[in-house]
Structure formats: structure tokens, C-alpha cells
């Protein structure tokens, strides 16, 4: 079947945004590719429902973050059991690079344990580096609320990752 030109343009324009966001959350380009496919395919399947006025960049940030976090939650298979939160490595001294990687993987999984909007605020602000104003627009809330979510997310993640951050 013939693709809608506007869909092709959408893929062309935003693929790099979607892939980069997914990679930053998941730390794995293969999984980021999966998120990219899932995001654009689900848009294509519901193509007729999208309003011409939609802010695609904002929409895609939100959807990508949600799908990446969801994938992180269900991709424990990629982690050996000793790296899971309930069984952190305490007695071993992994080298710095490995420790960093473990922490990033755990952070991705812990994002899935936060309320959605806290996770969104943390990823969009601290990982994507977006301004509060833009995040507020995306999440449909005020900048103050974004701050509240970010503070809560930071506190909660610090608690959840306590054994990895010490």
C-alpha cells in the first residue's frame, strides 16, 4: 500500500529524537530501535485519528519516554539476577565503568516504579535536558508542578537506588 507522504515526513523528521530519547533511557541501541518501531507503527495504525494541530515533538517525547520505561520494566532478562534491586552487589567491587552501567540500568528500571508524571518529569528534565517551560507544556501542567514532580522523582529514585549510590 502507498504510504501517506506526511507520515514519511514525520518519520524523517523525528526518528532521531525518538531513538536518542529511547537510547538515553534504556542505554541499549537495540532496545531503542524496538521503541522506535513500536512508536511509529502505533502512530501509523491510528493515523486517521491524529489531529493536524498536534505538537508532534512533544507528543513523541511523551510516548517514547513511556514506551522506553515500560520496556525497561519488562527487560529484566537482560540483567543477571545479582544486579536486580533486591540483590545488589555489596561485597564485590566492580570497576567504575561497570558500576556506572549497572547504575544506569537500575535507574531505567526504577523509573518504572515511579508515578508516570514523576518519571516523565525526571527523564525530560534530567536526561533530555528540556526546560521546565517546555515540560510543563508537554505534560499540561504548570512549571511549579513540574518542579514538584522532579523533586519527588529525585527523592524517590535516591531511596530506590540507595544501595547503588552509596
Amino acid at each position: 500500500m502507498i504510504l501517506d507522504k506526511r507520515f514519511e515526513e514525520l518519520v524523517e523528521q523525528y526518528s532521531s529524537q525518538v531513538l536518542n530519547t529511547a537510547l538515553r533511557v534504556l542505554g541499549n541501541s537495540e532496545l531503542a530501535n524496538d521503541v522506535h518501531q513500536e512508536v511509529f507503527l502505533s502512530i501509523w495504525q491510528r493515523w486517521h485519528k491524529f489531529n493536524g494541530k498536534l505538537n508532534w515533538s512533544a507528543y513523541l517525547y511523551k510516548v517514547t519516554v513511556r514506551k522506553a520505561i515500560d520496556l525497561a520494566k519488562h527487560s529484566r532478562r537482560s540483567l543477571p539476577p545479582e544486579l536486580e534491586l533486591e540483590h545488589p552487589i555489596i561485597n564485590q567491587e566492580p570497576d567504575a565503568a561497570m558500576r556506572k552501567e549497572q547504575l544506569q540500568q537500575q535507574l531505567a528500571q526504577c523509573l518504572a516504579k515511579l508515578p508516570k508524571r514523576q518519571a516523565d518529569a525526571f527523564v525530560l528534565s534530567r536526561i533530555e535536558g528540556l526546560a521546565y517551560e517546555k515540560i510543563a507544556e508537554m505534560l499540561g501542567c504548570s512549571e511549579s508542578t513540574v518542579r514538584v514532580h522532579l523533586h519527588r522523582a529525585t527523592k524517590n529514585l535516591t531511596q530506590l537506588l540507595r544501595n547503588y549510590l552509596d
Binding site: M1, I2, L3, D4, F7, E8, V11, E12, S15, S16, L19, N20, L23, R24, V25, G27, S29, A32, N33, H36, Q37, F40, L41, W44, Q45, R46, W47, H48, K49, Q104, L107, R126, I127, E128, G129
Partner: peptide, 28 residues
């Protein structure tokens, strides 16, 4: 984590893949 970027080639290949898959999938 914020400093990670996808390679341009990976990006091009992802674009081709989704357009191919979409072409095979019937849109509503």
C-alpha cells in the same frame, strides 16, 4: 545518560525499517 547519541547510520536504518513495515501494514 543524557550524553548518549544514536549513530547516524543506525538512525537511517531505523527509518527505512519502519517505512517498510508501515507499507506492509494497513493503516486505518
Amino acid at each position: 545518560m543524557s550524553k548518549l547519541f544514536v549513530d547516524e547510520q543506525v538512525c537511517e536504518s531505523a527509518k527505512r525499517r519502519i517505512l517498510r513495515t508501515a507499507e506492509e501494514t494497513e493503516a486505518s
